[in-house]
Design a protein around this nucleic acid. Structure first.
Lengths: 338, 338
DNA sequence: GCTTGGCACTCTGCAGGCCGGAGTGCCAAG
DNA sequence: CTTGGCACTCCGGCCTGCAGAGTGCCAAGC
């Protein structure tokens, strides 16, 4: 087991390296952090830490830098979550309060998060899975052509065009609309299928085919749209990544363009609490020198989606985690109000 | 005026430089393009072209590279638009044909364009300005709370929440819905204000305030949503930009995140035909070493929005223009069909 | 047994100097 | 106007040397 002091040395190394971006040696370490031991002692500790795989040297006679494993230990045991200052919190609130609709909320959140952390921000649109139905609308566009509009409690609107097998009358449509809404409004998406199952039976045989089509489309929408959309921002911050640009930044940009990758990334994170994935812990190869800090957010106690940031493994974890958590909370509040 | 041969020399310089990314000298020029004159002669021509500001040398005793002015002349007079090969055209068609809704069309277009040109692609969502109304829907969510849903002929859906000054009855609402639709369906957005102006008069005094609110919201939506949304993709291609990374790429990424900048960029382009803005011709400073190739696209003969690519001034203009034009055409077709 | 100072060693990064290559500009001849 | 010749310039690569930072190890001290 690592002694208390060695952990302290590791913490000091991580903090220094994150600050300076340069390998850190035993001398500066004793100077900057009052470790109360000599450089020689620290060197011994560093040798031990290196044996255990927590730090590494880029080349002989250079200082040490933390490994993924070192960051992991730092995040798990050595670092807390740094709360934001109250001006920062006020700024968040003010900035988010100005949002006019869901798109705007997500857009603002992305920008905010990118700005606060100076990293790439990723925000998932609230998922439909855990949402409830606020309203279902059916519009007759033509005799045998309908539009289905689904409105969720998170303010999301989905629409689908439906080609009916047979024309449907206005009164039947109104009837269907009314029955549909009385059954599903306020209900969870997952409940909807069983709630509408027997609806066609209430109608004339002539209309049943059409009504089944409508219901099928509705259910499809619920399922399909569970594949999330997301928004990213702050990619310009990637330029602060390192000195060896093209090689580092390219795969990251590519990964960010693949929504599938990002969704998988967020999906792998825990549903509650904050998740930090460091370097190679991310499956995706292009992201092997980045860390992802993510957290769920939601209007109630349950998370309806996730948000987070992607940055270099060498990042300010406490600060980033603080910002991510704070933003998630405020977004949750905003969603709950609307 | 520049002689025929000098123009030929300029063309050769542009082509070579675009291909090799290196300043091009008189010797290789005579070798690679059969100019039928000696290097010395070409040197004289180059000196003349430099005097006129079409080319420049990075430093004494280096080859020449085209200036913005040189590219301008090249694009205007020396280069055509390179048509795509038929496999390429087929690929475009196949790829776009799979789209299921408007979002998907735009998304696929962006990816396609980025892939074809190996540059950053920008696609504007079809504008509401020139669109017509397909349907307006009013939903009563609560006694004094409505939702307005606007559906356009391009398949776009906008929704707004409305807090009414007074509760409104279902029958009145149905009446309003019917009247509203009978007046505005099929009409251009620009016509709508005059068409609905006198609508409140048809209703009881009690309801007029509410109805005015609804109409105001509708008009607001029409105006506000004329600010376009857009989608960008292929940012990973920025890494192919040049060797002097951070300085070049950063401002570009920043500009790309500012939708306002991009919209202005596209907005400045001609409504019909292709627009090429080269280097400093773009107002935005961050884009001073990039060129923007854009073109309008639309479902009919009129453009409803624009799309284009952003790349280094040193780009393959004929090829890029060909790809942009072709994609715009196919997208137009897709929109017309749906 | 841990801590410490000392010391030799290694490696990077930078500055300076050298050289070859590529390209130019100019000139005089065709 | 075109061409070959020639002197000149400048970049980029390469080597060298040197200072600085950092390490590992050892022997002495607490």
């Amino acid at each position: 087991m690592l002694s208390e002091r060695r952990l302290e040395v590791l913490r000091a190394i991580v903090q220094d390296y994150v600050g300076t971006e340069e390998p850190v040696g035993s001398k500066v370490l004793t100077e900057r952090h009052n470790l109360k031991v000599s450089p020689a002692t620290v060197r011994n500790d560093m040798a031990a830490l290196e044996d255990e795989g927590y730090i590494a040297q880029p080349h002989t006679s250079a200082g040490r830098i933390p490994t993924d494993k070192g960051y992991r230990l730092f995040v798990d045991k050595l670092a807390g979550v740094k709360p934001l200052s109250s001006p920062e919190r006020r700024a968040i609130q003010n900035f988010l309060d100005g949002a006019v609709d869901l798109d705007d909320v997500v857009g603002r959140t992305v920008r905010l998060l990118a700005q606060l952390t100076r990293q790439v921000a990723v925000v998932q649109y609230p998922s439909l899975t855990r949402s409830t139905v606020r309203h279902v609308e059916l519009l007759g566009l033509a005799p045998a052509r309908l539009m289905l509009v689904l409105i969720t409690d998170t303010g999301r609107v989905e629409q689908r065009l439906i080609d009916c097998p047979a024309p449907i009358g206005e009164t039947v449509l109104a009837d269907l609309r009314a029955r549909l809404n009385s059954r599903v409004v306020g209900q969870r998406f997952t409940e909807v299928p069983s709630l509408v199952q027997d609806l066609p039976e209430a109608f004339d045989a002539d209309d049943r085919a059409t009504i089944s089509t409508v219901l099928a489309t509705l259910l499809e929408t619920l399922v399909e749209e569970t594949e999330e959309r997301l928004m990213i921002g702050g990619t310009a911050n990637l330029t602060r990544f390192g000195h060896d640009f093209p090689l580092t930044i390219r795969p990251v940009l590519e990964a960010l363009e693949e929504q599938v990758v990002l969704l998988k990334l967020l999906g792998e994170a825990k549903d509650s609490g904050m998740t930090v994935r460091i370097g190679h812990e991310n499956q995706h190869e292009g992201l092997s020198s980045t860390s992802v800090v993510s957290v769920g957010y939601g209007s109630g106690d349950e998370a309806v989606a996730k948000l987070g940031v992607v940055g270099p493994t060498r990042m300010d974890y406490p600060g980033t985690m603080g910002a991510v958590r704070a933003v998630a909370r405020y977004v949750g509040q905003i969603l709950a109000e609307s």
